[in-house]
């Protein structure tokens, strides 16, 4: 067979799979978002509602706005903290040597841990009766030991952020170590010879050259933060109350617990919109490389 036919034939199965498993549900979700869709009733979906599901979310649902706020602040803090800490760790580990390489390979371990399990692990550590943290504070600063971390809305939110940051630092660190390694050594050495102190080399030469990788890292982390579900589900299940209810969790709750498929689809689609921008930015970086 000629290459010019073969090349399309080779991608065809993949395109079919991607369409069937990702594009179709995306479009179908959009369609459902315009309907009254209650699973409990027969003849699904029911009446066409137009944009009513969307206006309902915007105008009638404080819980929706709560999730938007939770997701936005959660994304802001996790992106900021993870990136900064990962950058610090990457700078510490990048020079190589036995200790640093060992720690680098340890980084892969938390990263391979399922987010759900990270949620469980942190719930365990923050357990008010026999959690690690209470034991720790019991020794270091007893007044903190009696705190019921996951029952307090603010503290629960920050525990979720801690778990997220903990789970993502290893990956971002590895990415940034890769980015640092791709900076030509001689630019750094040139700066040293030119008279720059360690700090100046970092500020004037290393970081500016790391900007593209940092941008990729920020976008990627933002995307995954916006989608957060697993950890929060296992750690706080959105609670106490709705203090840690992210948008994904909100959609899950309305769709599955209350069987409001149409409304859930509308909210889910509202999540897609920021993703489009982030994906666009991300794709630009990917293709710029080529």
């Amino acid at each position: 067979m000629r290459d010019r036919h073969l090349k399309y034939l080779l991608v065809l199965p993949a395109v079919i799979v991607v369409f069937a498993t990702a594009i179709w549900p995306l479009v179908e979700s959009l369609r459902l978002s315009f309907y009254e869709g209650r699973l409990s009733r027969p003849a699904f979906p029911q009446s066409f509602l137009g944009v009513e599901n969307y206006t309902w979310a915007f105008l009638e649902e404080p819980a929706f706005w709560n999730s938007v706020w939770v997701t936005a602040t959660y994304t802001f803090w996790t992106v900021l903290l993870t990136t900064l800490l990962a950058l610090g760790l990457a700078l510490l580990l990048a020079p190589g040597g036995r200790l640093r390489v060992t720690v680098q390979s340890l980084l892969i371990i938390p990263f391979a841990m399922s987010p759900a399990l990270i949620g469980v692990s942190f719930r365990f550590m923050f357990n008010p009766e026999f959690g690690l943290f209470d034991a720790f504070f019991g020794i270091v600063f007893p007044p903190l030991a009696t705190i019921s971390w996951l029952s307090d809305p603010t503290l629960a939110f920050w525990v979720c952020i801690m778990a997220d940051v903990w789970g993502w630092i290893p990956f971002l660190t590895l990415v940034l170590i890769g980015g640092l390694a791709s900076i030509p050594r001689d630019t750094i050495e040139a700066a040293q010879v030119d008279g720059a102190s360690g700090w100046r080399v970092l500020k004037d030469v290393t970081l500016p050259q790391l900007v593209p990788v940092l941008a990729v890292v920020l976008i990627l982390k933002a995307i995954f933060s916006l989608k957060t579900f697993d950890q929060v589900y296992m750690l706080t299940n959105g609670g106490p109350g709705t203090a840690t209810q992210t948008l994904s969790h909100y959609v899950y709750f309305n769709g599955l617990k209350y069987s409001q498929i149409g409304y859930s689809a509308a909210v889910a689609w509202l999540m897609v919109i920021p993703m489009i921008f982030l994906t666009y930015a991300y794709a630009k970086f990917v293709f710029q490389k080529k």
Binding site: E28, S29, G37, F229, V251, I261, A265, M271, M275, Y282
Partner: peptide, 16 residues
Amino acid sequence: ATQFVPAVVIVLPFFV
């Protein structure tokens, strides 16, 4: 891009 679509969006139509 499909990688970045929230899983909840994918799963609803499949559930139905």
